[in-house]
């Protein structure tokens, strides 16, 4: 009888302690971000959709069609076609980026010797049709340049 009362009392005290913790935590400021009304500020290195940064003056990209990114991509999400320009030099014809296959590992950006690729912070990339996931990076309407920080992380450590 004695031990039973003692045990019940201890159980009651410990349950009350647990409830006290819950009460204390209720008064702590919540960390929840009410997405989409509120947004978090992404760190510089956040990896989102692949883009080709452009030169602000000439609007030219820096891709030389060396195919390094196509070779390193583990999922085959990059397809590059080339053509010869007037001087007979091999240049980029079409840079096809299959967003549906991309895992955002960032190997393409890392391997690029000409700094022609960046991972943007674009993350709301759901579309209604699968064909919209095949992107042609060299003819994108939105021009991403080096100065634009709305989602472009620096390639090297900033």
């Amino acid at each position: 009888m004695q031990t039973m009362v003692q045990e019940s009392w201890e159980a009651f005290v410990n349950l009350a302690k647990g409830l006290g913790i819950t009460l204390k935590q209720m008064l702590v400021k919540p960390v929840t971000v009410q997405y989409p009304e509120e947004r978090v500020i992404w760190p510089d290195r956040t990896r989102g959709r692949l883009v080709m940064p452009r030169d602000p003056q000439t609007q030219a990209h820096r891709c030389t069609a060396c195919m390094m990114c196509e070779r390193i991509c583990p999922n085959g999400s990059i397809e590059i076609t080339t053509r010869a320009n007037e001087a007979g030099k091999r240049i980029l014809d079409d840079y096809i980026f299959h967003l549906e296959r991309c895992t955002f590992c960032g190997l393409c950006v890392e391997t690029c010797a000409f700094d022609a690729l960046r991972m943007s912070h674009a993350h709301e990339i759901a579309v209604r049709d699968r064909s919209q996931l095949v992107l042609h990076l060299q003819q994108e309407n939105q021009v991403f340049n080096d100065a634009w920080r709305g989602g472009l992380p620096a390639k090297k450590d900033s």
């Binding site: 992404w42 760190p43 956040t46 190997l107 890392e110 450590d157």
Partner: peptide
């Protein structure tokens, strides 16, 4: 995320070191 840009699938380590 601040270190390597992803929250779960990092792709951070490399053969011979780390990437960032």
């Amino acid at each position: 995320e601040a270190l390597c840009g992803q929250r779960m699938t990092f792709n951070y380590m490399r053969i011979g070191g780390v990437s960032r």
